[in-house]
C-alpha cells in the first residue's frame, strides 16, 4: 500500500533501467533463485492460505445469498427491518466518513506541519481506535453519554439531545473506530511532499486557505481518496461499538451488520446472507473503484 501512496509525480525509479531482458523484469538472477520445489511450495502455501481464509468463505456467502433464487433475494431486501437498517447504515456511514475526512485532514496537517507540546501523545492516541476492541469503544461512549448517569449524557438529555440508542451515538462510535484511517494515509504523503511548495505559494501572495486549497489539497488528493474509501469500508462493516451504543432496537437503531446477526440467529439464513453479501460487495466496489482510478494519475 505504501508504494501506491507516493504523491503523483514523485520521482519513480526508471523502470527496466539497465535491464537487458525486459521480459524477465523483477525476477532474480538464476543463481539466486530457490530450487523448483521450494518455489512451488511457497506458491501453494501462499495461495492456499489466502484461499481458505479469505476467498472461499467470502464466495460461500455470495453463493448462499443466491442459493434460493433471485426472488428470495428481492424478498429479503424488501423486508421492512432490512430496508430501514440499510438506510440507517448509509446515513451513519456518510456522516462518519464526512467527519473523519474533515478532522482527519486537519489532524494530519497539524501533526506534520506544526510543532506543539503533546504532539507525540496525540499521535499515539490516534492509534488507539486501531488497537482497542470496538466493544470497549462502545462501552466507553456509553459511560460518558448515556442519559441516566453519563457524564455528559444527563445534561444533553435535559436539553433534548439523545446520543445513546439513537443516530448521534452510532455516528460517534463509527467515527471513533474509523478515526485513524484518513490520518494514517495522509500523514506520510504530507511528509513526503514537504512544505517548500506551500512556502513558495505563501511567498507568491497566497494566504493559508488559498495555499491549502490550491497547493496542499491537490498534492494529497489520492491519499485522501484512499483514506475515505478505507473509512467507508470500515464504517459500513462496524459492528461491536455500534451494537452497544445503538441498543439494537429493530426498525429503529439497527444497522445492516446488526440485522445480519439478528436474522442469522432467527434462522432467516437467506436474509442474513443477502445482507452480508451486499456489505461485502459494497466494500469490494470501493476497493475496485480506487484501483481503477489510481493508475490514470500516476502515468
Amino acid at each position: 500500500m505504501a508504494s501506491d501512496l507516493l504523491p503523483p509525480g514523485a520521482p519513480v525509479a526508471p523502470e527496466t533501467a539497465g535491464d537487458t531482458t525486459p521480459g524477465r523484469r523483477g525476477r532474480r538472477p538464476d543463481r539466486l533463485r530457490e530450487p523448483w520445489a521450494v518455489r512451488w511450495l511457497l506458491r501453494v502455501v501462499t495461495v492456499g492460505y489466502v484461499f481458505f481464509l479469505v476467498a472461499w468463505p467470502t464466495s460461500l456467502v455470495f453463493r448462499n445469498a443466491f442459493a434460493d433464487g433471485s426472488q428470495a433475494v428481492v424478498d429479503a431486501l424488501s423486508d421492512e427491518s432490512v430496508r430501514l437498517a440499510l438506510q440507517l447504515t448509509a446515513e451513519i456511514t456518510v456522516w462518519s466518513v464526512l467527519i473523519n475526512l474533515v478532522f482527519g485532514v486537519t489532524i494530519a496537517m497539524l501533526l506534520v506541519r506544526y510543532r506543539f507540546p503533546g504532539k507525540r501523545l496525540l499521535s499515539a492516541l490516534i492509534d488507539v481506535p486501531l488497537s482497542v476492541s470496538p466493544v470497549v469503544v462502545g462501552l466507553s461512549l456509553l459511560l460518558v453519554y448515556n442519559g441516566r448517569d453519563g457524564l455528559f449524557g444527563r445534561t444533553l438529555e435535559n436539553i433534548g439531545i439523545q446520543i445513546i440508542f439513537s443516530a448521534p451515538g452510532m455516528v460517534m462510535a463509527t467515527t471513533f473506530v474509523a478515526l485513524p484511517l484518513v490520518i494514517r494515509e495522509v500523514v506520510p504523503v504530507l511528509q513526503e511532499i514537504g512544505d517548500e511548495q506551500e512556502q513558495a505559494a505563501r511567498s507568491l501572495g497566497a494566504n493559508a486557505p488559498q495555499t491549502f486549497r490550491r497547493i496542499t489539497l491537490p498534492a494529497i488528493k489520492w491519499a485522501v481518496v484512499y483514506g475515505v474509501v478505507l473509512s467507508l469500508a470500515r464504517s459500513l462493516g462496524e459492528f461491536g461499538a455500534v451494537k452497544i451504543v445503538s441498543g439494537n432496537i429493530v426498525n429503529q437503531s439497527q444497522t445492516a451488520t446488526l440485522v445480519v446477526e439478528q436474522k442469522y440467529q432467527n434462522f432467516e439464513q437467506t436474509s442474513a446472507y443477502v445482507v452480508a453479501a451486499l456489505l461485502a460487495a459494497a466494500a469490494m466496489v470501493c476497493l475496485v473503484v480506487v484501483a481503477l482510478l489510481r493508475p490514470k494519475e500516476t502515468s
Binding site: P7, P8, G9, I193, E196, Q197, Q199, A200, A201, S203, I215, P218, A219
Partner: peptide, 11 residues
Amino acid sequence: FVFQHYAAFKH
C-alpha cells in the same frame, strides 16, 4: 523566493 529544490507546483 526561489528555492534550492525548485518547489515546483507538481500538479
